[in-house]
Design a binder for these strands. Structure first.
Lengths: 213, 213
DNA sequence: GACACTAGGTGCATCGATGCACCAAGTGCA
DNA sequence: TGCACTTGGTGCATCGATGCACCTAGTGTC
């Protein structure tokens, strides 16, 4: 039935939006990627074609919303991890270590696999996929940054932002490499490779923080 | 899904109407009569209260529509019976006999029981129930008259109408008596009583057609 | 290159559902 | 009796879905 809303209009509007998103997710799941037309989506969602564009500016926006959805669960877990950690002294190294620890504990392989499929895997145009993928990571970075700022109000905002951006963009890079591995990357071997790539990233970034001796 | 219609708007409108009718029927079935409010009906149909009145002028109209529904199947069987009979000579007596035969073959006890429940049985105000019940019979008469006119184009329209009206109003009268019988009238005894009342009606009416000797 | 077709997307008018306020009638209670 | 409340119903404005026409870009074919 209808979600709790002040009135039926609002509820129906939300329901229609939800149906569009649900239909898109179902079609992606069935086809292994965004291989469907607006007409198919509208029919599956049981709305008029024009209605799809009443809710979303483009098909890409729908896919991005779905990526956000997939990411939401992960980021919530992520932030729970961050929030349950002891608050450090807010130094640059401490913030760095904290973010690294939570990145390591997050099931990023699963999230990347899911997002890759949503965005078309190896079948979509590279430029489009890259742009969408970048948007996904940008959103993750924003959220993480908000949390860091909340936890370390005395930390230099610019330094925090640079730290977060460095790590998230690094994650974006290794995600691309990891996603290019052949076969089922969600098995033990694939996950081990992910950890190896992640260690490379963190070592590389951490080396940038150590005082030169 | 949606019924076949020229466009979604038309289809959605029809769907909403159907949902209202379906909800009303369900509520009548659950409560043994029309004991429900507009608010309950709208909620059950998952439409706004105002929408109920966009489709129907009143609650009575909804109930009448449902009676029509119940009657439709019966009347279709009825008319099939009429249509499969040999066409007579169109004389007054022949038309009369034909209508009587089809009335006898129709499962009117079941239809009357169903309509009685829809209209509230012994619980609704008598005036209201009577008016609605009369409307039901009026509609049945109209339809039967159209069929008679089709089969006997040379028959006097006024005579046909009088014959049909006489019989249908007679059915209305005996239905009232039959419905007032205590207990389960759909058993063998109840149906036998119906046939007895029907015989009384037809004998009575037929006596009016025989030449005086 | 020209043309036809397809698909994503846009503008705008129309429609039916909805929200809201109100009315009249009926009911129950002090 | 008077008042408050409930219920069926009505008028009217608003909203979001829909229909339709159109645009642009891309693709395929001759």
């Amino acid at each position: 039935m209808l979600i709790s809303h002040p009135d039926r209009r609002t509820a129906l509007k939300a329901l229609h939006r939800e149906r569009i998103l649900g239909a898109a997710q179902a079609l992606v799941d069935e086809r292994g990627g965004p291989q469907f037309s607006v007409d198919e989506l509208a029919a599956r969602a049981d709305v008029a074609r024009r209605t799809v564009f009443n809710h979303f500016a483009s098909l890409d926006e729908i896919l991005l919303t779905l990526c956000d959805r997939a990411l939401d669960v992960l980021i919530e877990d992520f932030l729970l991890e961050v929030r349950s950690a002891e608050i450090g002294d807010g130094s640059r190294g401490c913030v760095f270590d904290e973010i690294v620890k939570t990145i390591q504990s997050a099931d990023l392989p699963l999230a990347i696999t899911s997002a890759t499929r949503l965005l078309g895997g190896s079948e979509a145009p590279d430029a489009r996929r890259r742009a969408l993928g970048d948007a996904v990571f940008a959103r993750a970075a924003e959220r993480l940054l908000l949390e860091v700022a909340r936890r370390y109000p005395e930390a230099d905002p610019l330094e925090s932002e640079l730290t977060v951006a460095t790590l998230i963009s690094g994650v974006s890079v290794i995600a691309k490499h990891w996603a290019a591995l052949p076969g089922d990357r969600l098995d033990a071997a694939g996950r081990a490779e992910w950890q190896r790539l992640l260690a490379t990233l963190t070592d590389h970034a951490r080396a940038g923080y150590l005082p030169t001796t």
